[in-house]
Simulated assay, not measured.
Amino acid sequence: MKFDNPEDIIQLTPQWKGERFENGRPKVPEDVLRRIRKITLEEAWGPLWHRGYKFQFEGDFKIVHPDQVMVGRAVTAVMVPQRPDLHETLLNYGHEQEGRSGFFNQWVIDSLVEDDVVVVDMFDKVHLGTYVGGNLSTAISTRTKRGGAVIWGGIRDNQQVSEIKNINVYYRGSDPTAIGEVTMVGMNVPTRIGKAICLPGDVVLGTPAGVIFIPPHLAELTAVQAEKSQVRDIFGFVRLKEGVYSTAQIDASWTTALWEDFTQWFESDEAAAEYRHLTWETELEEARKNELDGPRSDVRL
């Protein structure tokens, strides 16, 4: 086996058609990451859930900075309890065949680049399961600039880690012991985090409620649908305050007339300026079709 194998990563992520890192990991554009930083957990969850991605969220974490949103591209690792023969084989392979130094967790953190998030299945181990402490969290901060870590296991040096402001860390528990009696069996492979699954290159959105893993091929679509929901809400609040429409009209499928009102507002009002990269032809066409087919109830996703 190879750690961080490009052929495996490309095979695992065939629906991603964009740029990749040298190791094959999907490289979701920085602009999409920037836009995802502005959306809520529920706005990200909806498009995934309704496309069959029902195991992307996990909320059972402690959080170093509970009010701080974290967004980045996943670098994954899978740890298992130590078995001496396997442990020696894999540690030696990494050192001798791949030229890596230090322990398994250092291999992963040494690979990080800007906007990365470490995602580690530590099989919920806290005692002797502290994947990072003050030093490695500082390394994550230096390498990722604004990323962080999601650890289904423990951390140590919480007081030091909490002083690092530009990253966030989601973890299961704290312990003063160092990492031990564990072996890494996969780097940039499918990783289970509680009830969720994460693949290398997923966009990790960490919120006060927990973490959601957005497949790279759905990242821009998720951002677009969230932004459309946001700007429609802004318009709806304005028109409700003006008494132009009822809540029933705003919450139901929009008529062609309402869509035309919205698009005029969208093209001219300053409140919509940051959303003008969005287009609405599909929604307008659907409204026209619905009026021809007859009225129906709908729920916005």
Rank of each mutant, 00 (worst) to 15 (best):
P190M: 05
D175I: 05
Y170S: 08
V117F: 07
Q160C: 08
E114Y: 08
D124F: 08
L199D: 02
T183M: 13
Q249V: 07
T138G: 11
L221F: 15
Q249S: 15
A209N: 13
I234H: 09
K195V: 12
A223T: 03
V169H: 05
G210V: 06
A196Y: 01
K125P: 03
F237E: 15
A209S: 11
L128Y: 12
V120D: 02
G194T: 04
I250M: 13
Q159I: 14
W152I: 02
E163Q: 15
V150M: 12
S253M: 13
A223H: 03
D202K: 02
P176H: 12
H127G: 14
V150L: 12
A209H: 14
N166Y: 10
I214V: 13
L128P: 00
K241T: 11
F237L: 14
L199K: 04
T247R: 13
H127S: 14
D251N: 14
V238K: 12
D124V: 03
A219P: 02
I193M: 10
G147K: 00
E181I: 12
F235M: 08
R172L: 11
T144I: 10
P208S: 14
I164A: 05
R156I: 04
Q159P: 07
V150A: 09
T222Y: 06
V169W: 04
I193T: 07
N135D: 15
K228P: 12
V120W: 02
R146M: 11
A219I: 00
I167A: 04
V238L: 13
N166I: 06
L128Q: 10
I214C: 05
T144C: 14
L221M: 15
I250L: 14
L136M: 11
D175N: 15
K165L: 15
G153D: 03
R192D: 07
L136D: 04
G173K: 04
L205T: 00
V132D: 03
G243W: 04
S174N: 11
V120Y: 02
M122H: 04
G129R: 01
I155Q: 02
S141F: 08
I193Q: 04
S246R: 08
S229P: 08
D124H: 09
G173H: 06
I155A: 02
V120M: 10
T177Q: 14
A196L: 05
P190Q: 06
A196W: 00
D233I: 08
